[in-house]
């Protein structure tokens, strides 16, 4: 077996394992840590696909920023010592969820296996980052600018919603 195939299976195993751990661990802080491992695993999968820029972004944004936000969120809202039973008081639908998820997974994998996937044959560019930059500012300039506005809106909106109510009267 080639080396990158072995690497793929290894990383996929770790990613899926830690994703399952996010769901099944009973302490919310442990779940958050497993989630960071999942993010890193996905970055590894990007690397096996030669998507180096995407892998770097995944590590920076998800494993870095998003996980810190999640940990902060846990710090601010956790009750007790972070056991799921205290945090997720509405989580009563364990068995229903298991049935629905299994059925969903079954349908999904059935269709995915049945589909004749065709691999791309075009040669990969050496300079992926340069190509992405060029695309962002030519064909994809409208979504790019729109994303800039979206971030502004999200930031201003967060301030508007979080701002202290001054005159409760």
């Amino acid at each position: 077996m080639e080396l990158h195939v072995i690497a793929f299976w290894l990383i996929a195993f770790v990613t899926l394992g830690s994703a399952l751990a996010v769901v099944f661990l009973t302490n919310i802080v442990h779940s958050a840590l497993a989630l960071i491992l999942t993010f890193l695993g996905i970055a590894g999968l990007y690397l096996t696909l030669n998507a180096d820029f995407l892998a770097a972004v995944q590590v920076l944004v998800y494993a870095g920023a998003v996980s810190i936000l999640i940990v902060f969120g846990i710090m601010l809202i956790t009750r007790g010592d972070g056991r799921m039973a205290d945090t997720n008081i509405f989580g009563k639908y364990k068995y229903t969820a298991a049935i629905v998820i299994t059925a969903f997974l079954g349908v999904l994998s059935h269709y995915i296996i049945k589909t004749p996937w065709q691999m791309g044959t075009a040669a990969l560019s050496e300079n992926t980052m340069g190509d992405i930059a060029e695309l962002l500012f030519s064909d994809y300039v409208i979504p790019f600018e729109l994303a800039a506005i979206l971030l502004t809106v999200a930031m201003v909106g967060a301030i508007v919603i979080a701002r202290e109510v001054k005159n409760p009267k």
């Binding site: 994809y140 409208i142 979504p143 729109l146 994303a147 506005i149 979206l150 809106v153 999200a154 909106g157 508007v160 919603i161 109510v165």
Partner: peptide, 26 residues
């Protein structure tokens, strides 16, 4: 005309609406 434009525009609309729905704190 493209799924990426579509998605970003959809999110801009949705996030603006979430803020509009929630900013009436009183």
């Amino acid at each position: 005309g493209d799924f990426i434009t579509l998605y970003v525009a959809l999110e801009l609309m949705t996030i603006s609406f979430i803020i509009l729905v929630g900013f009436g704190k009183h």
